[in-house]
Design a protein around this nucleic acid. Structure first.
Length: 804
DNA sequence: AGCACGCCGACT
DNA sequence: GTCGGCGTGCTC
């Protein structure tokens, strides 16, 4: 009986979102396995596409003649059965395609590159004629995107006339790094004999011979080059003379080469021990229990995680720990690597594709038992999991905002069910969803209420900027904050200043007519960038020159407005000329490793003030920091989003925790125009529990999560009314499927209605129990495929992070 | 996605 | 009359 492979092909559409059957040719029958990538012919022209084998069977329900698998792309499966099952569930859950989910789970290099080759199939067509259409140097390798429409048409015509043949290629990008090792073939006894044959002035050759004679062990080729200051040519000629052998060996690109000093488990206090005991009990009894570890900043959550991981390892199991991208600082990596050494694999966006691939392979080959990583690390190919930990579980970065729109927490829960292991969600300020679930006993609540070392929480002072505005006019630094900074400078202590959001940025406004320079493609104002001396759009990347006169009224009084980190940095430097300031924002951290370098510099005391955006609020631990200033606490509050209070509270609580962690008492200044807002007042005392009660009441009143589930449907189109029409059509179709209890908001234009020249309209459904909703939405999505060619894009986001 | 089939307008 | 525009449907 012929073998049949069920393959998910790399064609991301709704119509092709199920496995296709292919015959397995005899020569592949032994090697093919579920989870491998294959190349299969697909569609009318039999173009080659990448696919994933999700099942091997002996029969297919497909009536017509099956095509055959072309080739295998892997020697062993890249996906486990668990991950294949997970991809199917995830596709359904997030209203996305299974192929999109599969590709999301794997390192980028597993994504095939497609290209085409052209061959003359009819002697009537001369190469010169063809070269007029397409230059000869790209005959062997071109992609449709690089062709102009007229080239495209000409080639299509020739192909229909059978004058040319198009050969499709699927290129595997997954390359292992290979280095040369040099192995000596001579011994000490040979040295004299060989040296006699080497010319007297060939100093390098003599050195090489001497080295080889005295070093029988093999050495990295580049290391040898450095050591003897010789070139590859010398080594190669040594090889030709038979003195040495060069061989290629595979090498991991290890992003964390430096060895970490090993640390020992710390002594736990009573609360930590009690929390740990509950988690380890679940590990031992293989129970898929979710825990919520709520602990004030500095209460030692990380130590509980580390000891839970140690316990899993002691029971011959593995562990997965997720950390927000931004908190995946060298500090955190050092802590985990320090405890578990080479058993740790790290996955985050700062790594190159090659480095990620290598870390991934270390996990796949069971060379790493502990995985630490950002959101997508939740798909790490780790087996036999003993515990999954999600640190700072309230972080919005755990939700992916493009397809598949998954939340790492839900994926982790699925994997915990699969592996029968506990999930630990940790935070000082849990998301309301998680905290509410622990209230209902769905999660088990573990609380850490004491800071280790018993240090007091920093003193938080709220500065009313309304009064400051009246007294001193508009400014970024209140006298209270300025004095505090001055004091730290004199004491030689460090300060962290946070400017909320990159968005509170400098835009340009005409003082005469009020004209604001906006992006021609998007509905937002352009931001001034001093580093490139230009105006940029944060949404589409549009860039233009800084205007000298107002384009509207020709006035010269067109000025900067608002505050960006660059402007604050300038102002700060003027105020404190002697201060050494480090700025950390999207612009200064774009380059690889820049993030680490800035923190390293600050940590080693090379700067007095660290000025930055949200990214400085998370997970940093610098003992010499005794002052934290939040320049504008309000910007997040003013956003039209039901989570804005929660975000503000979390951010302020978190950034306050950066002050005075060691033996020195910390001080925090929060500048705000809303000093009486409950999110700000409660952040002052770091009273999460009170904030939770208050915010839950407000969510209840407004019928928002966690009392209601939410689903957002968005339509996008170049023409505003088509996007709107589509949303009204969706609404008409959906409404009969919903009960009276469901609440529908919209259709409305999104708060930023136009991005990249497309208009966005959305509806949001708030519901408690709508069994028909999932099916109805899936159906709408399937039908909308037909409209896709007309340029209408429909996006569905279950539990969106914001309605904006 | 990409390719073929099929039905309408402006050209040799 | 045909060439080629792109709307529609299918891909094991």
């Amino acid at each position: 009986m012929a073998q049949i492979a069920k393959v998910i092909v790399d064609v991301p559409t709704m119509q092709t979102n199920s496995p296709y059957s292919y015959l397995v040719p005899d020569q592949l029958a032994q090697a093919i396995q579920v989870g491998m990538r294959v190349v299969v012919p697909f569609g009318n022209g039999n173009r080659k596409v990448q696919g994933f084998v999700v099942e091997l069977a002996v029969a297919s329900h497909f009536e017509k003649q099956l095509k055959s698998v072309e080739s295998l792309m892997d020697l062993e499966p890249v996906l486990t059965k668990e991950l294949i099952a997970l991809s199917g569930w995830l596709a359904d859950e997030t209203f996305s395609f299974q192929i999109t989910c599969l590709l999301t789970m794997l390192p980028n290099v597993m994504r095939a590159k497609y290209s085409k080759q052209i061959r003359i199939a009819d002697s009537e067509l001369t190469p010169t004629e063809l070269a007029q259409i397409l230059p000869e140097d790209s005959w062997n390798d071109f992609t449709p995107e690089q062709l102009t429409p007229s080239q495209q048409n000409a080639l299509t015509r020739l192909r229909r006339q059978n004058k040319i043949e198009i050969v499709y290629q699927v290129k595997n990008q997954a390359q292992t790094k290979r280095i040369f090792q040099v192995q000596s073939l001579i011994t000490l006894a040979d040295e004299e004999k060989i040296l006699a044959k080497v010319r007297k002035n060939a100093v390098k050759m003599q050195q090489l011979v001497h080295y080889l004679a005295t070093h029988p062990e093999s050495i990295n080729q580049t290391a040898l080059e450095k050591k003897l200051a010789i070139s590859v040519a010398t080594i190669k000629s040594g090889e030709a003379k038979g003195w040495l052998k060069r061989k290629q060996v595979e090498q991991y690109r290890d992003p964390y080469k430096e060895t970490h000093t090993r640390t020992q488990p710390l002594h736990l206090n009573e609360e930590q021990q009690a929390a740990l005991n509950q988690v380890t009990a679940a590990i031992h009894s293989s129970k898929a229990q979710t825990f919520l570890l709520e602990g004030v900043t500095g209460s030692g959550k990380t130590e509980v995680y580390l000891q839970a991981i140690a316990d899993a390892l002691a029971h011959k199991k593995t562990a997965l720990m997720l950390v927000p991208e931004i908190a995946l600082t060298p500090q955190m990596v050092t802590r985990v690597k320090g405890r578990f050494g080479k058993q740790v694999a790290v996955l985050h966006s700062g790594l190159s594709d090659g480095e990620k691939f290598d870390e991934w392979r270390r996990i796949k080959r069971h060379e790493a038992q502990v995985v630490v990583g950002a959101r997508s690390a939740v798909f790490a190919p780790i087996e036999n999991i003993g515990v999954i930990i999600i640190d700072e579980e309230h972080e919005t970065s755990y939700k992916q905002d493009d397809a598949p729109r998954y939340h790492a927490r839900n994926v982790a829960q699925w994997r915990c069910m699969f592996h029968h292991c506990p999930l630990v969600l940790g935070s000082a300020t849990p998301s309301l969803e998680s905290r509410a679930r622990s209230e209902k006993q769905v999660y088990r609540l573990l609380r850490l209420t004491h800071r280790i070392n018993g240090q007091p929480l920093p003193q938080v002072k709220i500065v009313d900027m309304r009064q400051e505005l009246q007294k001193n006019g508009s400014q970024n630094f209140s006298p209270a904050l300025s004095d505090a900074i001055e004091q730290r400078l004199q004491l030689g202590q460090q300060s962290i200043l946070m400017l909320n959001r990159r968005g509170f940025s400098s835009f340009i406004m005409c003082r005469d007519c009020g004209f604001v320079l906006k992006c021609p493609n998007c509905d937002i104002s352009l931001t001034l960038h001093m580093d490139s001396h230009s105006m940029k759009c944060h949404y589409c990347g549009h860039e233009e020159a800084i205007p000298k006169v107002c384009p509207n009224c020709k006035s010269h009084k067109i000025r900067y407005y608002g505050t960006g980190t660059e402007k604050v940095e300038q102002e700060l430097q003027e105020k404190f000329p002697e201060a050494r300031i480090l700025r950390m924002d999207v612009d200064t951290t774009r380059r690889k490793g820049a993030h680490e370098r800035i923190l390293q510099k600050f940590g080693s005391g090379d700067a007095d003030i660290l000025l930055g955006t949200q990214m400085i609020a998370k997970g940093l631990d610098f003992p010499n920091v005794t002052l934290v200033g939040v320049l504008n606490a309000d910007t997040a509050l003013e956003l039209p989003d039901f989570r804005s209070s929660e975000r503000t509270f979390q951010l302020l609580t978190q950034v306050s925790g950066r002050a005075g962690r060691a033996d020195k008492l910390g001080e925090v200044f929060i500048q705000t125009f809303n000093p009486d807002h409950y999110a700000i007042q409660l952040a002052k005392t770091q009273n999460y529990e009170n904030f939770f009660r208050k915010e839950m009441y407000i969510r209840h009143q407004g019928k928002y999560p966690p009392y209601y589930f939410t689903l957002q449907i968005t339509a996008a189109h170049k023409e505003e009314n088509l996007a709107a029409q589509k949303m009204f059509a969706v609404l008409d179709e959906l409404r009969p499927q919903l009960s009276q209890n469901a609440i529908i908001l919209g259709p409305t234009p999104k708060p930023i209605a136009r991005v990249k020249n497309k208009y966005y309209y959305q509806i949001v459904i708030k519901y408690k129990n709508e069994p028909g909703l999932h099916g109805a939405v899936t159906k709408i999505l399937q039908e909308s495929q037909k409209n896709y060619q007309k340029g209408i894009q429909l996006a569905i986001d279950a539990e969106p992070q914001s309605f904006m």
